[in-house]
């Protein structure tokens, strides 16, 4: 479980860094797609993680 949490944090970082790199290279559409495409599943995952911590 601890490993999975670290892995999820790395995934968040990967999304942010990749979006940033595309943005800095002026590929705004790709950057937005990467960011917004991951927002909903990423947010839902945070919710389930925080629910677990509360329990």
């Amino acid at each position: 479980m601890e490993f999975t949490k670290i892995y999820i944090c790395i995934l968040y970082l990967v999304v942010i860094i990749c979006s940033l790199i595309f943005y800095l290279n002026n590929y705004y559409i790709i950057a937005s797609l990467l960011l917004f495409g991951n927002v909903l599943p990423g947010y839902k995952l945070v919710l389930t993680l925080s629910d677990n911590d509360e329990n």
């Binding site: 479980m1 999975t4 999820i8 995934l11 990967v14 999304v15 990749c18 790199i21 595309f22 290279n25 790709i30 797609l33 990467l34 495409g37 991951n38 599943p41 990423g42 839902k44 995952l45 389930t48 993680l49 677990n52």
Partner: peptide
């Protein structure tokens, strides 16, 4: 336990980041 279905979906959507390869 985390929600396995959501975890699976998130792993799937993060795979879009593979396109960073084209900037290598």
């Amino acid at each position: 336990m985390i929600d396995q279905a959501i975890y699976r979906r998130f792993n799937h959507t993060v795979a879009a980041c593979f396109v960073i390869y084209f900037l290598f």
